[in-house]
Nucleic acid binder design. Structure first.
Lengths: 360, 360
DNA sequence: GCTTGCATTGCAAACGTTGTCATTTGATAC
DNA sequence: GTATCAAATGACAACGTTTGCAATGCAAGC
C-alpha cells in the first residue's frame, strides 16, 4: 500500500504542536524556550510542554540556527590516525580546545583529513568550514601551494607552526599561526646538560620534514656549538617520533668507542625508547647517561627514572586558538592576519638528568 | 535580541553575489555547489566563484541545514576531564567514531559534560542534540532518574553499558545500550591463570560504583570460585582506575604472610602500577608473580614485561554506535529501542603471565 | 464608563539556501 | 526562416523557527 500523500504526520514541528492545542506557533516557541517561557501563562506552558513531550518534539536545529544567526561551533582538523588521541600533542591540545570552547559556550567538531589522496585541499577546507564557524588546522604539514591557497580562504582559521614546511618564514607568511617556542625550549634543556658538566652529548632527532623536529635540532645544536660541545656525527641519529626510533638510536650510539654522557631527544617517546634500551644494555640513567625528552608526555613522571623534559603550553595554545576563532567569528569582515609570538615552553627537571660523574 | 540593523552591509549571502553579478540566486547556488556546478556555463561559473571569493562569501550553515533536512553530524558526550583522550577507552572509542563517521560522510562533534553541577540532565541532552542528529553518551554514570528521563528522549542516542548503574538490568531497560562483555573477558583471563597452575590469586579491583569494575570483579570471582580458588580477603584491594591504586594494592598484598602467585587487575593502569611496585620490591614478574590487566592499553606491549590483558573491541563498538545513530537519523519516527548483545572481548596473552613455579 | 497599564496571545515577516518548475537562450537541422 | 531540442537560467515556493508589532482580554484606577 503506497502511503497516502498527505502523510508525514510524524514530522513534529512547533506548528504541529500548536495545531493540536489550538494555539499559535509563536506561543509554543515562547513556551519551549527557557528565556521566553515566562511570557506564557503557567497553565498553558505546562500544557504545551506536555504535548511537546508526548509528540516527541525536538526543535529543528537548522531552522533555529538560520533564525538565530551563527552557530557556535568550531572545527579542529587532525590527521587521520588510529592513535591520534594518544599523542601528547593532540590529546592535550584537543582537551584544551574542548575546555576553552566550553567556557565560551561553543561546540567543537573534530574532523580528520587524509592528505595522501589527491583531494583538492581548498575544497576540503571549504567543506569543513561549511558547518562550523572556524577551523583550527592541526593536520599534516602543508605544502607551499596549499599555504598560498589558504591566503584566499575567507573563513576564520588558525594554523600551528608545526604544520608549516621548515623553510617558511612565519613572520612573512601573513597567516594566523600559533606556535610553541621549540628553539628556546631545546636551548634551555641543552643548557641544563652543559651546566651539569656534560660535554659529550648525543642527539636523537626526529623525522626529516617535521618542522618541530627541525627546530628542536636547531636549538640543541646551536646551544652546544656555542659552548664548544659539538656532537660527533656518530652520536646523532634521526628517526620517527616513536620509542622504537629511540631504541635504535641509542643502540647505535652505545656502540661507539667513545660514548656520550648525555642524550637530547626530539620528543619523549624517543627518550622512553632510549631509556628502555639503555636499561636493557646495563647502562644506568642518570648515573651513566643523562637523557632529556621534549613534550612532557603523560608518562614522563610515571617512568623510571622520571624524565627531564620540556613542557609545551598546549592548553594555552588551544585557549588562544579558540579565542582567535571566536573573535574572528564575532567580527566578520575584519579578519586579522595574525602572527603570534612563540609561546614559551617550560623545562621540567626530573630524575633522568644528573651531573657528570667525576671519573668521566 | 535586536541585531545591529545599521551596519552589516558586508553580509554576503548568495543573494548579494547574485545581485552584484546580475544573475539569479539559483544560478549562484548551483555554481557554488560541486554537485550541481556542471549545470552552469563554465565562464559564468568562474565569474561567480571569483565574486564569491572576492566578497568572502561563505554559505550559511543554518540555512543549508534547514533546507536540506538533517545535518550529518553526531555528538559524542564525554566526561569533562583534562586527560580524557589519554585513556585507552575514550581514545580508542573516539578514534573509532571518527573513522566510522568519516566513512559515512558524517562529522563528529565532541561535547563534554560535567555532572557535578546541578544542571538539568534532560536539558543538557536536549541542548546537545540541538546541533547534531544524534548522541553517543559516554560520560559519567547515569542515575536511575536520568535513565527514566532518557526514555522520553526522542532524538537518536546510544549509551554504553559502562554508564549504567550496577543494578540496572540492561535487557529490561529498553534503551539502546552497547557494551563489551566484561564478564567473559574477566572469566577467560582468570581461567588462563588457573590453567597455568595458579591457585593463590589476588584481585586489584576498580572503584565502587563503576559498572565495568563491578562486572570484572564478578567475572574474576565467579571463575575462581568455580575452581576452588577463592581469594583470601587480604588479597583483595579496591581503588580507582590508576597506577597509584595498583601500587598501593600490591604493596598491601605483598605484606601478607602467604602471598598470592598471581594477580588479576581491573584495568591495565592498575596492572602497571602493580608491576612497577613489585619490581621495586624485588618481586619478579612473571617468575614470582603473574599479573593480568584489562583493556589492552597503549602501553601494554611497551612495558616490561609485556602485559597479558583483555582487548576490548572498542572500534567495533564505535562503528556500531555510529551505525545506529545514522540509521536512526535516516529513519525518523521508528526509533529502535535497541538492546545490543555484549560484544566479545579477546585475550592478549603476553609475557606478564607464566606457569606456577614448582617450588610453590 | 472610560482610560490606563499589564499580561497574554496571534500575525506575519524574516532568516539564506535549494529544488522544482517554467522560461529563455543558443545551436543545429531541415 | 523555422522547427526542434538541449542547455542554461530565472522565478518562486518551501524548510521550521523566532520576534517585533499589533491585538486582545482583564483588572485597577479615575
Amino acid at each position: 500500500m503506497p502511503r497516502p500523500s498527505s502523510a508525514r504526520l510524524d514530522k513534529t514541528g512547533i506548528v504541529q504542536i500548536a495545531a493540536s492545542l489550538g494555539v499559535s506557533p509563536s506561543t509554543v516557541s515562547r513556551a519551549l524556550r527557557p528565556e521566553t517561557s515566562h511570557l506564557v501563562r503557567a497553565d498553558r506552558r505546562k500544557q504545551i510542554m506536555d504535548m511537546a513531550e508526548k509528540q516527541h518534539f525536538s526543535p529543528n536545529p537548522g531552522a533555529r540556527m538560520l533564525r538565530k544567526g551563527a552557530n557556535a561551533t568550531l572545527t579542529v582538523v587532525v590527521p587521520f590516525d588510529e592513535n591520534i588521541f594518544f599523542s601528547e600533542y593532540y590529546g592535550r591540545f584537543l582537551a584544551g580546545t574542548l575546555h576553552a570552547a566550553a567556557a565560551r559556550g561553543w561546540g567543537v567538531q573534530i574532523s580528520t583529513m587524509r592528505r595522501s589522496e589527491n583531494t583538492n585541499f581548498r575544497e576540503a577546507m571549504q567543506h569543513m568550514s561549511l558547518e562550523s564557524s572556524g577551523i583550527i588546522y592541526l593536520a599534516e604539514p602543508l605544502t607551499h601551494q596549499e599555504l598560498e591557497e589558504l591566503k584566499g580562504f575567507r573563513r576564520p582559521f588558525v594554523l600551528t607552526k608545526s604544520t608549516l614546511p621548515e623553510d617558511v618564514d612565519v613572520r612573512a607568511l601573513g597567516l594566523p599561526v600559533l606556535s610553541v617556542d621549540n628553539l628556546s625550549g631545546a636551548r634551555s634543556v641543552a643548557s641544563l646538560l652543559l651546566q651539569l658538566g656534560h660535554r659529550r652529548i648525543g642527539l636523537l632527532l626526529g623525522p626529516e620534514g617535521s618542522r618541530d623536529a627541525h627546530e628542536r635540532k636547531q636549538g640543541y645544536l646551536e646551544m652546544l656549538q656555542k659552548n664548544g660541545a659539538v656532537p660527533r656525527p656518530e652520536w646523532i641519529y634521526s628517526g620517527p617520533f616513536n620509542a622504537e626510533s629511540g631504541r635504535a638510536g641509542i643502540e647505535k650510539i652505545l656502540k661507539c668507542a667513545e660514548r656520550p654522557t648525555a642524550i637530547c631527544c626530539a620528543n619523549d617517546e624517543i627518550a622512553f625508547g632510549a631509556m628502555h634500551a639503555a636499561h636493557l644494555a646495563g647502562v644506568r640513567c642518570p648515573d651513566d647517561i643523562s637523557i632529556v625528552g621534549f613534550d612532557d608526555g603523560h608518562w614522563a613522571t610515571a617512568c623510571q627514572p622520571a624524565l627531564t623534559t620540556i613542557r609545551q603550553p598546549l592548553s594555552d595554545l588551544a585557549e588562544r586558538a579558540v579565542g582567535l576563532i571566536v573573535e574572528a567569528a564575532n567580527n566578520p569582515g575584519q579578519i586579522r592576519r595574525f602572527v603570534s609570538d612563540d609561546m614559551p615552553a617550560s623545562m621540567m627537571i626530573r630524575e633522568s638528568t644528573g651531573p657528570l660523574r667525576r671519573s668521566e
